[in-house]
């Protein structure tokens, strides 16, 4: 079964960066409807800085790479997304246990630690119309698929589908966190921009591991 090493993580980050760049206008348009029209620009600035850092200061192991990524995001994004995405990667780092290649269960454990970091930083609950609404079902689906014996690539595909469903399920919700919450009922019938970028993050992980191919 495939393990995720530094190259695999770099592929994930680069794929996420390119999908954020492609979807920048979409993310910003979603944010304009219920927020302040900067999610696309902020995430693109952050992921561009992350990719620049990959070349400037290559990391030796997954923990170092994840920590560096988290620090770069905290430094460069701002807003709420900076601390939230930054904390996600910063909390993944120690959960790798210092391994040079992450076995599927370790990768899943690290992802869950990252998601728990997002929750502790943002205090969001399921259904608050936030990025957590995409991340929570994703890590649940990942664990379930790995538990059923699926290979990591398949399990991440299931996680990505669950994240997409979670993202779509934010549409009717009334926001209870972040800037969209100021709108009250008017935040309903809009897809949450944070859940949208979070679904791109999981989709990029699935694509990165799928590209890696069978061991």
């Amino acid at each position: 079964m495939a393990a995720v090493d530094v190259d695999g993580l770099e592929r994930w980050l680069r794929l996420f960066a390119s999908s954020v760049a492609e979807q920048q206008d979409t993310l910003t348009a979603l944010d304009a409807a219920i927020g302040d029209a900067d999610h696309g620009a902020n995430m693109n600035r952050g992921m561009t800085a992350v990719v620049d850092a990959l070349a400037a200061t290559p990391a030796d192991d997954p923990a170092a790479l994840l920590k560096q990524t988290g620090m770069v995001l905290v430094r460069s994004v701002g807003g709420a997304s900076g601390p939230l995405y930054g904390t996600f990667f910063l909390r993944m780092a120690p959960a790798t246990g210092g391994a040079s290649a992450l076995e599927p269960e370790v990768f899943a454990k690290a992802l869950r630690a990252g998601v728990e970091g997002v929750v502790s930083r943002g205090k969001a609950e399921l259904g608050d119309k936030t990025m957590y609404d995409a991340l929570a079902p994703a890590v649940d689906a990942l664990d379930a698929a790995l538990g059923a014996g699926d290979p990591l690539a398949d399990a991440l595909r299931a996680a990505s589908a669950a994240a997409d469903q979670g993202r779509d399920a934010t549409i009717p919700l009334v926001a209870r966190k972040g800037r969209a919450s100021y709108l009250g009922d008017r935040s309903a019938d809009h897809q949450d921009p944070g859940a949208t970028s979070a679904a791109l993050l999981i989709a990029a992980a699935a694509a990165a591991v799928a590209e890696q191919g069978p061991p």
Binding site: D38, A41, N42, R45, V74, V77, G78, G79, P83
Partner: peptide, 11 residues
Amino acid sequence: AGEVFTSPVPD
């Protein structure tokens, strides 16, 4: 000072 309508960062 942050970007337009965006919080500055911890550093």
